[in-house]
């Protein structure tokens, strides 16, 4: 239960990326705004993939699924 603050971190990254996107769009740099959105998405994706692999490993050990997954 100590990992719950990751939720707030991800939500914060989402809001900050949206703000950066809006500011860059107002400045007329549409392409850089899209790149900023993509990079924010990748940062969050790295965090989530880590937890997803942890979840799958635990599922494999609890349900005895070593041979089919």
């Amino acid at each position: 239960m100590q990992d719950i603050y990751i939720l707030f971190q991800v939500a914060g990254v989402g809001i900050i990326v949206a703000i950066i996107h809006t500011v860059l769009k107002q400045m007329g740099k549409e392409d850089i705004a899209h790149w900023a959105t993509l990079i924010g998405f990748i940062i969050v994706l790295v965090i989530v993939i880590d937890y997803l692999s942890r979840l799958f490993n635990q599922i494999k050990s609890v349900f005895i699924l070593q041979m089919i997954l």
Partner: peptide, 19 residues
């Protein structure tokens, strides 16, 4: 604000509940 990050947030919530 951001559709794709909200999807990842839902995924993260599911992972926590499942764990």
């Amino acid at each position: 604000q951001n559709e794709s990050i909200s999807f990842l947030l839902v995924l993260l919530l599911g992972i926590f509940v499942f764990l």
